[in-house]
Structure formats: C-alpha cells, structure tokens
Amino acid sequence: MSRRILIVVSNVDHYEADPSHPTGLWLSELTHACDIFEQHGLEQTIVSPAGGKSPLEPQSLKFPSYDASARSWHGDPVTGQNPGSAKATAAKVAALL
C-alpha cells in the first residue's frame, strides 16, 4: 500500500478587508513540501476547498521566494496554467466539490 498525502491549497485571491489587495497560494511553500514528499515516495493529491485553480500570491513570485523549486512548478494545474508540465503529472490534482 502506498503512502498518501492530501495537500489543501487556497482559493482566496484577495483580502476580504481590502479586495484590491491580491493574495493566494505561496508557491514555494507548496513546491518545497511536494518535492520532499516525492523524494520519499508519497502519493500526493492536491485539492482546494472550492475546486478549480488556486491563485498565486504575487509576492511569492519574486526573489528570494521564487527559487528553482517554485520556477519548476510554475504553470501547473494548481495555478490553472500549462497543464502538461512534468510536475503536474507527478502529483494527482483533484477538486473537492
């Protein structure tokens, strides 16, 4: 039996108190964890409470957080872009309904 992990990511794209302030998933928090889980042979499923794509926190796409791990994942189905990436196929992406 394979070991499995369920990763829940955000669907929130702005702060409720200030809708003009964008927010979202801190990309490197996800990518570093998934890279380690993959190294240990864990089967990963990524979900979000509302289903669908998870917006990215704009600040997470800047130095120093936007590192090699984050760059290698940028554009997978979690963000709704480039669904054919190698990392996307490594992690099963599902949606909670």
Rank of each mutant, 00 (worst) to 15 (best):
H40F: 07
G75C: 03
R71N: 02
A90E: 11
T31L: 07
H14V: 04
S69T: 15
A50D: 12
N11K: 07
H40A: 04
G24W: 03
G24S: 09
F37H: 04
T79Y: 15
A95P: 09
A94L: 13
D67T: 02
P55Y: 09
R4L: 09
I7C: 05
I46Y: 01
A33M: 11
L30E: 02
P49C: 08
G51A: 07
K53V: 03
H21N: 10
A50E: 14
P55G: 00
A94M: 11
D18A: 04
I36A: 04
I36H: 02
E43Y: 04
D18F: 09
H21I: 02
S60D: 06
P55T: 07
K87Q: 05
P64K: 04
D76L: 00
W26R: 10
Y15S: 03
A90T: 09
L6Y: 09
V9A: 08
W73L: 03
Q81T: 15
G80E: 00
A68N: 11
E57V: 08
S60Q: 12
S72I: 00
P55C: 02
S54A: 06
C34L: 14
T31K: 06
V8E: 05
L30D: 01
G51I: 01
A50R: 14
P19H: 07
G84I: 07
W26E: 07
W26G: 11
S69M: 12
K87L: 03
E16A: 00
S72L: 04
A94C: 11
L96F: 10
M1P: 08
A33Y: 06
W73G: 01
C34M: 13
S10H: 10
E16I: 02
D13E: 12
D35R: 14
T79R: 14
T23M: 12
T89K: 14
P58H: 00
H74I: 01
G24K: 06
E57T: 07
A91S: 03
A91R: 12
A17Y: 01
D13N: 08
